[in-house]
Nucleic acid binder design. Sequence first.
DNA 1: AGCACGCCGACT
DNA 2: GTCGGCGTGCTC
Length: 732
Amino acid sequence: MLFDDPNLQETIASVLVPVAVPGAYTYKVPAGQSVVPGTIVKVPLGPREVIGAVWDIEPDAAINPKKLKTISRVYDTTPPLDRDLRRFVDWVANWTLGAPGMVVRMVLRSEEALEPEAPIAGVRRIEGAAPDRSTPARQRVLATMEDGFAWTRSGLAHAAGVSASVIDGLIHQNVLEVVSMPAAPPPPKPQIDYATKALTPAQQAAVDGLIETFDKTGGSVCLIDGVTGSGKTEVYFEAIAEALRREKQVLVLLPEIALTEQFLRRFEQRFGVYPAEWHSEITPKNRARVWRGVASGDVRVVIGARSSLFLPFKELGLIVVDEEHDAAFKQDDRVPYSARDMAVVRGHLSKFPVILASATPSVESRVNAELGRYELFELPERATGAAMPDLHVVDMRLSGPERGRWLAPRLVHAIKDTFAAGDQSLLFLNRRGYAPLTLCRTCGHRFQCAHCSAWLVEHRFQKKLVCHHCGHFEKIPDACPACQSADSLVACGPGVERIAEEVSDLFPQARTLVLSSDLPGGPERLKREMKIVEEGGADIIIGTQLVAKGHNFPKLKLVGVIDADLGLAHGDPRAAEKTFQLLAQVTGRAGRVSGGGQGLLQTYNADHPVIRALMSGDKHAFYKAEVDARRVAGLPPFGRLAAVIVSGPDRAFAEGYARALARAAPNDAAVTLLGPAEAALAMVRGRFRFRLLAMAPRQFDLQSYLRTWLGRGPKPTKGLRVQVDIDPQQFL
DNA sequence: AGCACGCCGACT
DNA sequence: GTCGGCGTGCTC
C-alpha cells in the first residue's frame, strides 16, 4: 500500500523567508494541506514565526530531513502570488544582488492583510419594538433609522446628533439589536468617462500615441517629456482611462513628496473617485485594505510611493512613473533598488506599457528614448498657451550686490516691480538656516560638527548651530571656544533665513514667508503655509528645494535663484544633471498658469554649460552636452557602463575594497573610482560608500559579468555591502 | 554579582 | 532581519 510508505506521505516545499540568506528554506507541508508556488505561509524560523511565500514545491532538498520543520499556517484565503510577481521578485533579487527573501518581504509587508477584515459591529432596528419612554433624542435616532438599514454605533450617533449612550440605551431596551456588518464595502470604481477634459492638439497626439502602445504585445516604455504646465498629467490620465477600459489595474508611482491631497483631487475630478493610496504614512488598517483590494481586484488604481511596486496586483496593466527623474525613487537601505527602473522591468516581464513622465527627464531616460528603446512624446508648450518664463542671468562678477548683501540690484528691482503689480515672487536657495558657516574673526576658528566634520549651520530663529548631516546641534556660544574672544563670531554665506532678513529689510511692507523643511511647527505648519501661498496670502516667498515640486502657486510671476552655482561643484557625477533639473523645475513655476513669468539666476559662472542651456531654453542642448561629457569621462548613462557601489561601516576598508575591485576588473573595463561626495549622508549613517564605474564589453550578461569580476576581488567581509546602480533597460 | 551593551553566527 | 549566546566592562 502506498500509504504505508512514510516517505510518500510527506511533501516538502521551499519557502522564501524574510532573512538575508541567498535562497529559500525547505519546510514540510502539514498533512491534509496543499500549497502551490506563491502560497503565503507562516513558518517557524529559529525562535520565532515569520511570514513567507512558497517558491517551489517538491524541491530537491539537500537538507537533512531531520532538520525540517513544518509550515505552521497556510493562508489559503489569500490568493497565491502569481507567476509574474514571483518572476519579478527573483529578477529584483538578482539585479540588486540581494536576498530573494528580503524582496518578498517587501510584498508581504502587511500581515494584517492576510486575515479577512474583521466585521464591524452595527445596530439595526428591531421590527415593531418601541422604547419605554420616547425622548427627543430617541426619536431622532429612530427617525434617522427610517431606511431600515444597519448603522455603525458612532455613525448613527453622529447622524442623529446624539451621544452614543442614547444608542446603548436603546440596545439595552431591545429596540435596537447589535448585528455584524460586513467591513468596508469594496471601494467604488473609477469612472472612465467621468469628466473628460478638452485636450490641446499636442496632448491629444500624445494620448493617441500612448493608446497605440497598449496593442504592442511585448509591452513598451513611453517617455512623456513635457515642460512644466504642459499637461502631462492629463495625458497620462487618458492612458489610465484606456487601461481601465481594458479592465486592467493601474499603478501611478510618485515621489513621496508629490503625494499630496492636490494630486488626489485632480484624479477625483477626472475619474469621480479617489484612488487608493500607498505610502509610508498610511495607517495599518488602510494598508491592509489596499493590499487586499489590490490582490482581489477590487482596487483598480493605486497612487503610491516606490514601495507600491511590490503590491500583489491581480491584473496590473499599466504603470505610470511621474517625475521619473526624482531621486526619491531610489531606495538606499535594505534592498537597494530604483523603483523607476524596476517599474520598467515589471512592465517588461508582464508585457504591459510603462509611462515615464517628467519636465526634466533623467539623462538615461532621455538617452533610452533617443536610442529608440523608449517611445518619446514631447510637449514643448504649456497647455494653457501661457508662455514659458523669460530667463535671465544675473552675472554676479559684473553686477553683484554690495558686501554683506545677497540680492543683486537687478533682482531687487524685479521683486519690487512684481510686488507693485500684486504678484508673487519666489526666492530660491537650497540652503536651510541662517548661514552655512560660522567662524571667529579673531582666530579663524570654524564651527564643525563633532560627529561628521561638516560645518555647523547657524539657525538664528532657534539660536542654534545645527549639523545638517546628523542632526547634532549646540547653542550658539557668546565667545569663541578656541580663543575665548567675545563678540567675534561672523556668519559666512547665506541661508534662507538670512535672505528673509534682507527681504524684510528691503520690503518691510511685503508679506514674507520662509518655506523650509525644518520650520518649527513641522509638516502641519508647512502644509498650512503652502496653502497660504497657493491662495495668494504671501508676496515674497523664500524657499528651499521643497518649493520645486508638488504644489501649484497660481500667482507666482518671478523666480529668483539666489545661487545658481550651488550644487554644480559637487563631486557627484550627476551634479550637472541634478542642478539643471532643479533649476528648470523651480524657474518653470513662474507664470505657470497665466504666463508672463520671469526667472533671474544669480551666478558667478554665466558660461557654465548648465546655465547656458537653461538660458537658451533648449533642453536638448543640455542633454546633448551632458551625454557627450559623460562619454568622455566614462560616466553614466553609459550604454555599456556598469556602476558598483561598495559600502561599509569601516571607511578605510570600504575604500581599500573598492580599489582592489578596480584592480581585479578585467582589462577591457575602464574603471573610475569616485569619492564619497555623493554619499555624504550614507557616510554619516556609518555606511561609507565608494562607487566604481566601469566600461563593460559590448555584449554581456551583467550578473555573470559582475559575479566573475567580484569573484576576482578580495572576499567581501561582514558589514560590507556591494550594490549595483545600472539602468537595466539594456539587459531586458 | 548583576546587567547593559555590542558583536557574531544561525536561522530549513 | 531578528534572535540568543557570549564576552566585556561598569555599577547598585
